[in-house]
Structures are given as C-alpha cells and as structure tokens.
Amino acid sequence: MDSAIYVAPGMSDEIAKVFIDIKVRVPSNNIKIIIDSNPQINRLGYGDINAIELLMKEGFKISKVDSLRIGVLIVDGSAWLYSPVPLIVEDENDIKINAITVTFEQAFELIDEIYEQKSEKNIQTTIFDTNQNVIQEGPVFSPEEYRKNDLDIAKKDLEVRPPKKFDLERQVQVYTGYFQFVELSLIGMGLRRMTITIPSKLLAVSGDKVVQEKLKTTYKLINENSKLSGKDIEDKVAHLRKTYTRSMGKRLGSVILLKNKEVFNQEVNKVRKEIIKFSDKVKTSLENELAYTKKEISKILVPVIMKNPPDDLKGIITTNKPSKKIASEYIDEEISKFLPNVEDLITEMELQSDFKDITYEMLNDPLFQENIQKQFKFDNLDKPYKSFSAVKLQ
C-alpha cells in the first residue's frame, strides 16, 4: 500500500490500528483521514472517540467536516463508496453488502462535493509512492483540521452523555417493536362537593325544629334522581384497558402491543368526544340543580326570616318585620355567598393516554419478564424474550 484516503463519520479502533500499522511504510502526506467532529457520531455508533485520540497521539493529521454520513475509501488507485453502519441500529457483522467500487475520479468528485467546492476551483493534487513516482492525480480538498480542542470537547460531551451499549440498544428497539408502556387516566369525572353548609345565623333565626331538621345544617346539591353520573364513560375506559392493555404488575404499569396502538388511539378519541358532550351536559344540569337548590332553600327560609329577621337585617330596614320581597332579596344575597358556582363543583374532564418505551433496566427486570410470558403466552414472543434476558449488563 502506497496511499490511503479515509472519509467517514467516525472511526473504529480496528481501523485506527490498521492505519498505525501502515504508517511505517506509507508517507504521512499520503494518508488522509476526514471524519465528522460531532460527538453525536459516537453515540450513534459510527465510531469510537478513543480511536481518534489514538491516531492523534501517533501523529496522524485528521480533518473534520459537519454532518457526514457516507464513507469513501481510496487505497492507491482503487476507490470504494460505502455506507457506514450505525451500531445503535445494526450489528456491522450482520451487514453483507454496503459498498460499491467506484473510479478514482468519482471518489474525488464525491469528496469534492462534500466540501461544496466547484469543479473549476479544484486544484490538482499529486499522490506519490515511496519512490516518489506519481500514483494518481485528483482535486485537492482542504477541510478544517481536527485539533486537540475538538477532541477535548467531544470527550467532555461524551462523559456527560456517554454512548449506550449498542447491542442492548438494538435489542431494546426490537423489543419496543412489540410493546410500549401505556397509562390510561380518566380525570375530573367526580363532583368536588355534593353538599353545602347553611350558615349558622340562618339556622338560628328559627327555633322551629321542623325547619332546622329540614335544613340539617347541610343541604344536598344534587338530588337523588339527578342523571350526572359518569359511570357509562368509566365503564368504557375500563373496557379499553381490558381489551388493549396488559398489566405488568402494580409497580411497572401496563403495556400495549404496538400493532393495536392505532386502533386503541381511535377508541380513546371516541371516548374523549363523549367526555366533551358529557361535560357540557353536566354543566347545564348543575346550573339547573343549583337554581333548584337556591329556590328550595329560599322557600324554606323566607317565611322564617319574615317572622324572625337576623340582626344584620333588622339594622337596615325601617319596619320591625321585613316584607316578603325584602326577605327574598336578603336570602338570595346570603345564599349567593355560600352557594358554589358550577366551576367550583367540577374539574375539567379528560382522558389521558401516555406512552413510554421499554428501557434497558426493564429488559432485565424479573417481574417484567415473568409477566410478558404470562400475559402473552399464546403468541410466539419467547424468541426475543430469551435473547433479551440473555443479555448481560456490564
């Protein structure tokens, strides 16, 4: 080998060692290495930052370019275009075909395009062999140098957010291809307060035990025949859980098969539409119930107030006893102080569905593994299950 040009998102330890081996017999200016300097490359599994550090320690000049996702390799007069394998997605040992042979000129054209240089501005560069014979000529490219500062920035970034174990991550993706965690929550379906408290001063104005017994200090806002129950919706939500989700235990929550997710979401949206209609119905009914309650309390207390007005009313009327009109207005005002508004009685009704993916830790959770086998015993899921439970966390 007399020359080598390597262009790729990153570099593995194995390739770095190859370059170190050929360094003793290949002129240093005949070895060109261009990579993507973004540390995200390493998190995706396109290379190892340690390989770059090793090459820099060995004196290799490395160049950098942004957003590089293809590979070009030129060795002497031969060239290849290839697709680097992101290990977070695939095992490179499973890849059979990911490269094609191209001409030397085509390879340099591609490298030229990477740096967005126009062909008329290309400067000819000459590559020599160890005897200073011309091997090949091609356009020069002048990317920025990858310096020690770039290496330090990348290493620090990777310390804060290190790459995942790619074999585990790939298996997580396969496993997530079957399941997701889902939490289905129905909130705001209950009324906040079903009773109100009658102020003691209104109770004290009458010694009539029948009246006091009738009011009983508290007064039911919703009568027994009220049709404000959300049981029908609660039953539909329970049916959704039973049909589409399976419990992995109280600590872990429930999972759903991804093949059912779309239909599940459609059913959830149907229930949400029913909740909107029900909420409007509840508000209208509560307004009517509150109006009825106010009328009933007034009907009981107005005669009592006319006979025995409270002290605060006596002080502002010119007669000893208030008229029915005054008593009614007084009661209406007092009732408005303790009778809640519709907004005070109900919360916003909502059906929430939250999805979460499987994690590394969950793959090795014995309870999760046990319940997956138990809940999905009729399907052929033991293959991915067994491969995951065999994975060893370092």
Rank of each mutant, 00 (worst) to 15 (best):
Q136V: 13
Y178A: 07
A291R: 12
R69F: 14
E90F: 15
L73E: 10
I31E: 05
P322M: 08
Q212G: 06
R43Y: 08
D382H: 10
L55T: 09
A204R: 10
K216R: 12
D235I: 04
T217F: 03
N223T: 08
S12N: 13
T218I: 05
L151Y: 08
K231H: 10
S387I: 13
L110W: 01
T126N: 11
I196S: 00
Y115I: 11
Q180F: 05
S119A: 14
K155T: 12
K227Y: 01
K321N: 12
I346Y: 10
E224K: 13
K201N: 08
Q117L: 09
L73Q: 08
D21T: 05
D208R: 09
E90C: 13
S37E: 15
E53F: 02
I346A: 05
L313D: 06
P310W: 03
W80H: 09
Q40C: 01
L215I: 11
Q369G: 02
I52T: 12
I256H: 00
L363T: 02
K64Y: 11
P366V: 04
E109N: 14
L345S: 03
D91Y: 14
P162A: 13
K337T: 12
K17M: 10
L184W: 03
S37L: 05
P199H: 03
A291M: 08
K321W: 01
K148H: 13
N93K: 15
D382A: 06
P27M: 06
S226Y: 11
I346N: 05
E213T: 07
L203A: 02
S389H: 05
P199T: 06
D91F: 10
P309R: 04
Q373R: 12
F179E: 01
S185H: 10
F179P: 00
I123M: 07
S119D: 12
D2C: 04
F264R: 06
E145Q: 14
M1W: 01
I52G: 01
G190E: 12
V85L: 09
E144R: 09
K118W: 07
K374I: 02
P340D: 14
I297N: 02
N131P: 00
L252W: 10
D280K: 14
I88F: 14
A154N: 05
I335G: 00
S63F: 15
L367C: 01
N38S: 12
Q373L: 09
T197S: 06
E274I: 03
K118M: 10
Y82I: 01
I22G: 00
N38G: 08
L381D: 03
K281V: 00
D157G: 07
E274M: 09
P162D: 15
V102W: 12
Q212I: 07
A204F: 04
L381H: 05
V140S: 13
F166L: 08
I34E: 07
V174Q: 10
P86E: 13
